[in-house]
Design a protein around this nucleic acid. Structure first.
Ligand SMILES: NC(=O)c1ccc[n+]([C@@H]2O[C@H](COP(=O)([O-])OP(=O)(O)OC[C@H]3O[C@@H](n4cnc5c(N)ncnc54)[C@H](O)[C@@H]3O)[C@@H](O)[C@H]2O)c1
Ligand SMILES: NC(=O)c1ccc[n+]([C@@H]2O[C@H](COP(=O)([O-])OP(=O)(O)OC[C@H]3O[C@@H](n4cnc5c(N)ncnc54)[C@H](O)[C@@H]3O)[C@@H](O)[C@H]2O)c1
Lengths: 226, 226
DNA sequence: CTCGGTTTGTTCTCCCGTTCACAAACTCCT
DNA sequence: AGGAGTTTGTGAACGGGAGAACAAACCGAG
C-alpha cells in the first residue's frame, strides 16, 4: 500500500533526488519565463539534462503532481518543488571571510532570486570593517552570535582561509547555525545534525585533469615536432 | 589473477574514487607539511574525512603502495596520487568572464600550488580589456582559439552570465578544450568526449535549505512570541 | 460512450559504491 | 628464528541509485 495523503506527502526523499530538485526548479523557472504552461517529463528532463525516467521517479517522491496523457503544469510543479525544498520564503544567510571570494559572493545577485538573503558580511580583519559591499557593510566576526540570534540564521557560508575555517565553523555551530557551505579547502568536523557542503575548485579541476590525462593517454601523442 | 605491472597499474578507476583522490592528495600534503613520514590508512582517512576501508579500496585501484603492518610513506603516496591525477606538471587553464567571480578566481593563489596555471583571462566586454588581474591582462574573448592553440589548453573555466555560457562552451570545444568547469547556472550541452563539471552555489544552498527545513519540521516550532 | 493516442507513476532489474571482515604480509621484540 | 601485534589489500555482503519497461490514467475525436 503506497497510498499517501496529499498533506503528508511521503517523508524520505533520497539524497540524490534532493540534489536534483534545485536543477528541476531552475529548469521550470526557465520554462515559466518562456511562457510555457505545461510540459512533459521528456521536455523537462531535457531542460534539466537528465533522463526522463529519473525525473519522473524523482518527482514521484514529492507526490503525484502530473496528469497522465498531459504532463505537468509548469507553475504548479514549480511551486511544489520550491515548497519541498523550502525556498518559498527567503532564508537568511551570513557570509564569513570577505576577501576575494567573499566579495564575489556578496555581489552575486543570484542568491536573492533563488530563496536566500545575505543578512551580514563578517570578517576578522578590522581593516575591512565598515566597507560596504553590495549595500551591506562588513562587520566584526565577533558579531556573529548576535546576528545569528537576531535573524534566526540557519545557513552560514565560510570563505576564509583554510586555517581559520574550522574555528569559524565551530563558532557558527555554537551560535546556532545548522548548515554550512564551505569554500575553504579543509575537511570540517562538525557535530551530528549539522550539515556541511563543500565547494572546492581545485578538486574540480583536478578531477577534470585526470580525465584529460586519460583521454590523452589513449592517443599517446609525442610532442616536440622535428 | 589480479597481477598488475607497476607501469600499467590497472586502468579503470571508478568515478567516485577519482573524485576522492584530490582529497587524499590534499590530506597527504598536509601531513607532509607537518613532517609526517608515514601514516596508516586510519590516520589518512581521518584527515580526509572518510572511512578507512574506503580509503584503502580507493588506493588499491592505483596499485599497492602501502606496507602491511606499517602504513603508507606519505611522500611516496603523495607522488603516486599526483601522478595518477596528472598534476605532477602544471595544466594551462583559461578563464572566460572576468566579472565578480572571474576576478576572485584569477586572484586565487591555490590553483598554482595544486597543478594549474592560468594562462589567459578572456572577456567579451571591451571595457575590461587591458585590465591587469593578478599579473595577467584581460584579453578579448576572440583571442580564445589562438591562446588555446598556443598553450595547448585543455581545461577552460566559464564564469560568464548564464545566457553566454553555452556559446562560450561551444567556442571552447571548437578551439580544442576538452574539459570545462562551469560556474554559470545553466545545463551545458557538449559533444561526446568533452567533460563538464558544474559548480552551482544556489543549488548547494538549496540543498542545505531542504535539510534545514526537514530538521525544523521535526521540531515544528511556531514563531511569533506573544 | 468508446477507442486510439499520449504521458505519468511505479515496478523490476542491474550496476555501482560503500562497508564489513579477514587472510596475507610486514615489523619488532625476545 | 619465532611469535605477538599491526596494518594492508581484497573478497563478499549490502544498500541505494539509475534505466527499462509497462500498466494505469487521462484527453479528445467520433
Ligand atoms: N578566490 C577564489 O577564487 C577561491 C577559489 C577556491 C577556493 N577559495 C578558498 O576560499 C577561501 C577564501 O579565498 P579568498 O581568495 O577570498 O581569500 P582572501 O584571503 O582574499 O580572503 C579571506 C578573508 O577571510 C578573512 N578572515 C581570515 N581569518 C578569519 C577569521 N578567523 N574569521 C573571519 N574572517 C577571517 C580575512 O580577513 C580575509 O578577508 C580560501 O580558503 C580559499 O582557499 C577561493
Ligand atoms: N559572483 C558569484 O559569487 C557567483 C556565484 C554563483 C554563481 N555565479 C555565476 O557565475 C557567473 C559569473 O558571475 P559574476 O558575478 O562574475 O557575473 P558578472 O556579470 O560580474 O561577470 C560576467 C562577466 O562575463 C563577461 N561576459 C559576458 N558575456 C560574455 C561572453 N559571451 N564571452 C565572454 N565574456 C562574457 C562580462 O563582460 C562580465 O565581465 C554567472 O553565471 C553567475 O550566475 C556567480
Amino acid at each position: 500500500m503506497t497510498a499517501r495523503t496529499s498533506t503528508d506527502a511521503g517523508r524520505d526523499i533520497p539524497e540524490a533526488t534532493v540534489a536534483r530538485l534545485p536543477v528541476y526548479l531552475r529548469a521550470l523557472t526557465g520554462l515559466a519565463e518562456a511562457r510555457t504552461a505545461t510540459c512533459s517529463s521528456e521536455e523537462l528532463a531535457a531542460a534539466a539534462g537528465v533522463n526522463s525516467a529519473m525525473l519522473r521517479k524523482d518527482l514521484s517522491y514529492l507526490g503525484s503532481y502530473g496528469t497522465r496523457g498531459v504532463g505537468y503544469d509548469v507553475e504548479y510543479l514549480r511551486y511544489q518543488i520550491a515548497r519541498e525544498i523550502g525556498v518559498t520564503q527567503d532564508w537568511p544567510v551570513v557570509i564569513v571571510g570577505i576577501g576575494n571570494l567573499g566579495h564575489a559572493l556578496a555581489n552575486y545577485s543570484g542568491f536573492r532570486s533563488r530563496g536566500f538573503r545575505v543578512v551580514a558580511l563578517l570578517d576578522a580583519d578590522p581593516s575591512r570593517h565598515g566597507e560596504v559591499v553590495a549595500g551591506i557593510d562588513v562587520q566584526p566576526f565577533d558579531d556573529l552570535e548576535e546576528i545569528v540570534a537576531e535573524h534566526g540564521v540557519a545557513i552560514g557560508v565560510i570563505a576564509t582561509p583554510a586555517v581559520a575555517a574550522q574555528d569559524v565553523a565551530d563558532r557558527m555551530v555554537a551560535a546556532g547555525v545548522s548548515s554550512i557551505l564551505n569554500f575553504a579547502p579543509t575537511v570540517l568536523s562538525v557535530p551530528e545534525g549539522v550539515d556541511v557542503r563543500k565547494v572546492d575548485l581545485s578538486i574540480e579541476l583536478q578531477i577534470l585533469a585526470y580525465h584529460v590525462q586519460r583521454k590523452n593517454g589513449i592517443v599517446e601523442a609525442e610532442e616536440e615536432p622535428a
